[in-house]
Design a protein around this nucleic acid. Structure first.
Lengths: 190, 190
DNA sequence: CCCGGTGATGTCAGTCACTGGCATCGCCGG
DNA sequence: CCGGCGATGCCAGTGACTGACATCACCGGG
């Protein structure tokens, strides 16, 4: 492996982010990204299915973290399952990654097309979790609701984690959101 | 209003659906849709922002139903709020609409681009609900979770409603899903 | 040391989504 | 009858994305 200069994919990603930050998604052509990485437009499309996909690397790995977490659930109680799946992803977002996540998120928020793609990725996660839960013997509707809940809590926690004034680690925030979710049903007349 | 033959928008929508059913999304060009409706490609883009949008009419109305339902919530208890918002949309899906919804859904499921767009619409709904809940004085995180929950329950119920062998009315299914969601936290060792 | 194979990249041409600018047409009020 | 206006058509252009084919760098075998 690794003829030519290696890391073509990584160079394309880095070039894309730099250019998007500077000129915005619509202000950059794929040909420009490729040129900045020392490649051609055609090669870009050999690595990424479309122009947006360049900002969504490592999705499979991300998804696997939830699934591996789920494997460690002690029993089939819904709260246990949700908690276990969430625990699996916490290490995926160390503090060193926070600045980077903020930059990437700013780009995503600036273009509806990116939001669509991110939503599709989360939907992929939800499907994978639902499937895993069903295979574990969980009732289909309960599986769907639990999977959606995992995604909701993760996203809520992630959004809080990259908020401007936030400094707590991801795991702590996520635990807090989870606790609040558990309180949602029992809370009365707040 | 209504010079020329009226209903250009509706003709475009109908033509698009017919053609998508027959040839699939990628097998149809915008020019063909427009021609089938007796118009030109340019006019299509005056009615719809892009090729996919033609399958998402009436979204504002749909969203308003949830918001109006929310207005009728008797108190600020989370379950009351969620229940009220869901009640607002039930009448939007009468049995007469089920066959149509199934056809449209089959088209949507066949193309990832449509799923992205649908996800974005649901995200718009969630944002609107979150905003409305916050304006009502609900705590931001509780508002976000409640809004997501409304969307989740709606989507779960909608999916069940258009399932092949399903005959129960939408409202009944949605009430059932809501009840199951309430049971999620309290259920132990199922 | 040369030689064919293989995988990554380049080249080229083409389709189609989408946009801006301008012309045109049908109706409506004056 | 006329001038305005809103809906539509026409045309040219940009850029995302694709298929087919050529080319290059490196590999192993002979």
């Amino acid at each position: 492996m690794a003829r030519w200069q290696s890391g073509a994919r990584e160079r394309l990603q880095a070039a894309a982010i730099d250019l998007f930050v500077e000129h915005g998604f619509d202000g950059v052509t794929v040909a420009e990204i490729a040129a900045a990485a020392g490649l051609t437009e055609r090669t870009f499309f050999r690595y990424f299915a479309d122009k947006r996909e360049v900002l969504f690397p490592g999705h499979d790995e991300f998804e696997q973290n939830f699934l591996h977490g789920l494997d460690k659930a002690p029993d089939d109680d819904p709260v246990s399952l949700i908690t276990a799946a969430l625990a699996g992803v916490a290490e995926f977002f160390p503090d060193e990654r926070r600045a980077w996540s903020r930059t990437r998120n700013a780009i995503l928020q600036a273009h509806p097309g990116f939001q669509e793609r991110e939503l599709l990725k989360m939907s992929s996660l939800t499907s994978a979790l639902t499937r895993a839960l069903r295979e574990r013997g969980i009732d289909p509707i309960a599986a769907a609701l639990a999977a959606e809940t995992v995604a909701t809590i993760f996203r809520t926690a992630f959004t809080a984690w990259i908020a401007e004034d936030e400094t707590r680690p991801f795991a702590e925030i996520q635990d807090d959101v989870l606790a609040r979710w558990q309180g949602l049903l029992t809370a009365r007349r707040p």
